[in-house]
């Protein structure tokens, strides 16, 4: 008997680097389709870092689900194959692997404060090209679009200035160039 037994249940000896990937999953917009996709991830132990979904083609009832996930090369290959196994999934595109992906996220950020902190918050918002979409004497709501790390950075700077609440869409992605998919 070996010192290092392993089976399908014990693959911990395989140490591979995890990669972060953004997947665009085009699905038939039918009831429960999001549940199928999310259920697959939880049932098979895959990660979801971010997920967005909306109908993108009303005539064909197609929705686009953007999933940011992380896993080893082997896991990522399985994720794609398992997604395609779902009946309402039309296509899966690995935007990250295409190396032509653009990612954006939209955030609504509420900051409350008075005096110098309020002025400083506005000044930083200007640098980040965040728009003020609501204001009171004591607060602002900023709208900010950009890559996720830009939003992270903005929130970090707002934190000492009275950050109250953040609402984010999650990552959206699309490939550069003239072609579809």
């Amino acid at each position: 008997m070996s010192d290092n037994p392993a089976s399908a249940y014990d693959m911990s000896h395989v140490e591979e680097d995890e990669e972060r990937r953004t997947l665009a999953v085009i699905v038939d917009n039918e009831p429960g389709v999001l549940g199928r996709v999310v259920g697959l991830f939880s049932a098979r132990g895959y990660n979801i870092e971010s997920l967005t979904v909306a109908e993108v083609d009303r005539d064909r009832h197609r929705s686009r689900i953007t999933i940011v996930t992380a896993g080893t090369a082997h896991t990522l290959e399985q994720i794609e194959a398992q997604l395609l196994r779902l009946v309402p999934v039309a296509s899966v595109t690995d935007i990250t692997r295409s190396k032509r992906g653009i990612e954006r996220e939209l955030a609504l950020i509420k900051v409350a404060g008075e005096g110098e902190k309020r002025v400083e918050a506005l000044r930083i918002a200007e640098i980040f090209r965040a728009r003020v979409i609501d204001t009171t004497n004591k607060s602002f709501i900023f709208e900010l679009t950009g890559a996720s790390d830009k939003i992270d950075q903005f929130c970090a700077l707002m934190d000492p200035l009275g950050l109250v609440e953040v609402s984010r869409t999650g990552v959206l992605s699309i490939k550069r160039g003239a072609e579809k998919g």
Binding site: S2, N4, P5, A6, S7, A8, M11
Partner: peptide, 11 residues
Amino acid sequence: FDDRVTGRIDA
């Protein structure tokens, strides 16, 4: 390649 078939994967 069910686990009942393969036994130990790395062997």
